[in-house]
Design a protein around this nucleic acid. Structure first.
Length: 418
RNA sequence: CGGGGCGUGGCUCAGUUUGGCUAGAGCGCAACGUUUGGGACGUUGAGGUCACAGGUUCAAGUCCUGUCGCCCCGACCA
């Protein structure tokens, strides 16, 4: 993609609407813009990152045998009355009455809707187990939206739901999701801790949270720095790690995923039953598995940045490489840069070509800020000797390579990255 | 919802304490010239309901009342 033709809106100065580091960088790098508190537009760069993150999630979900579907955001309030969560959700749920006088809400989550759906489609144990998931916009009238995309009122969530005939099946799916989550977060370049958690309004007995250490995290976690054993922080007290006896340390973390064994809470409430092999009618055993997809973006930035800007892990970067042509009035430079851009694109390396008529400093600053993992610099210094620079954004390592060797050098650098 | 901070061209801010005449700067934008490997320089220019509403006053960005919006701290959550 050509930079000059892209809607990339980087900011030179700190926007006053943000204090949180990831929020500042998201605004400065032109990933998002706020419409209202907790309500954001995704600009092209931010939307690309979102797409990359979703892609990672879809790959791992599909690999588990989960089927993607899409559920409605508009939901009848009656469904929530049946589960008893109408009251529990309270003001967080956005409600209104339509022209026909029906009481509706904007879905803050989808357990009720998916249970209702499966209830009508599954009637025999032979149709089980089922693993369904969706990536969708959820609406919550949060008491206090904050930190940009970390706590938003309109946000994107992946949730998966498992339906089993018995507890063993649920255990199996739960474990499957647990492992998939670890892979997803690792691919997103995150160090993640897992804690046993309180299921809260979701219900059920067992749940685990996936926590990413970050200074502005809203949750407190006790963690062992030796083995990453972690637990939810409850009260002051010098606790030791059960694995290696090290003193646990209290840290802040961002919750990016939460998985629950729901049991029969929703299936019983909504009458979602199936005929088992013994002829008995039984409620489905459910599990649900959420990831804060949009929240993942600022979380990744919290763990992947330096003083100059964002450092995208390659799997979620809006582009894999960027070609920077310094001084586009120099025909040798612009020609070589254009050819390199074409060669990288031919190799399926998603590349952003900065061919703007700007001074070198502006382009370097923007490249650092936007944080694409590999940068190719075509400038007068080296082009005279038919050489090109290939720079690693994170380590700042710079290779000066022969013009012909650029695509290989870029591919190699990407391959050896995290 | 309680406590704190803030609201002035697209962005970052000064001016408000102590009211005074056509409201300022830097960045960005447009044009021209000089520049060209880390956010260049000069000249010229465009761009403003000073968040909104009401009030006090000869006079309000500045004082008073109300409202709205944003950020931060607390309860909620992916």
């Amino acid at each position: 993609m050509l930079w000059s033709k892209s809607f990339i809106t980087t900011l030179k100065e700190m926007p006053q609407e943000a204090e949180t580091l990831s929020h500042q960088l998201m605004l400065r790098a032109g990933l998002i813009r706020m419409l209202l508190a907790g309500i954001y537009s995704y600009l092209p760069l931010g939307y690309r990152v979102l797409a990359r993150v979703e892609e990672v999630i879809r790959q791992e979900m599909d690999a588990c045998g989960a089927n993607e579907l899409l559920l409605p955001a508009l939901q009848p309030l009656d469904l929530w009355k049946k589960s008893g969560r109408d009251e529990l959700m309270g003001e967080v749920m956005i409600r209104f009455t339509d022209r026909r006088g029906r009481d509706l809400c904007l879905g803050p989550t989808h357990e009720e809707v998916v249970t209702e759906l499966v209830k009508n489609c599954v009637s025999s144990y032979k149709q089980l187990p089922r693993l369904l998931y969706q990536v969708q916009t959820k609406f919550r009238d949060e008491i206090r939206p904050r930190f940009g995309l970390i706590r938003a009122c309109e946000f994107i969530m992946k949730d998966a739901y498992s339906f089993d005939r018995n507890e063993e099946g649920l255990d199996r799916n739960y474990q499957l999701m647990f492992e998939a989550y670890k892979r997803i977060f690792a691919r997103c370049g995150l160090r993640v801790l897992t804690t046993k958690a309180d299921p809260g309004v979701m219900g059920g007995e067992v749940s685990h949270e996936f926590m990413v250490p970050a200074s502005n995290g809203e949750d407190a976690v006790l963690v062992c720095e030796e083995c990453d054993h972690a637990k939810v922080y409850t009260e002051e007290g010098k606790e030791k790690c059960p694995n290696c006896n090290t003193l646990l340390k209290k840290i802040n973390a961002i919750e990016i995923g939460h998985i629950f064994k729901l049991g029969t809470k929703y299936s019983s409430a909504l009458g979602a039953q199936f005929s088992d092999s013994d002829g008995q009618l039984k409620p489905l055993r459910m599990g649900c598995y959420g990831i804060g997809v949009s929240r993942l973006i600022p979380t990744i930035i919290e763990q992947n940045h330096d003083a100059e800007g964002i450092i995208w892990p390659k799997e979620v970067s809006p582009f894999k490489a960027t070609v920077v042509a310094l001084d586009i009035t120099d025909s040798k430079i612009i020609q070589a840069a254009g050819e390199i851009y074409a060669e990288l694109t031919q190799r399926n390396i998603d590349t952003l070509f900065d061919e703007r008529d700007e001074r070198a400093g502006v382009k370097f600053k923007d490249a650092d800020l936007v944080g694409i993992p590999v940068r190719v610099v075509v400038g007068r210094k080296n082009i005279l000797y038919n050489k090109i620079e290939v720079i690693h954004r994170r380590s700042k390592e710079t290779l000066v390579v022969e013009r012909k060797g650029v695509p290989d050098a870029v591919a190699d650098m990407l391959r050896t990255m995290e």
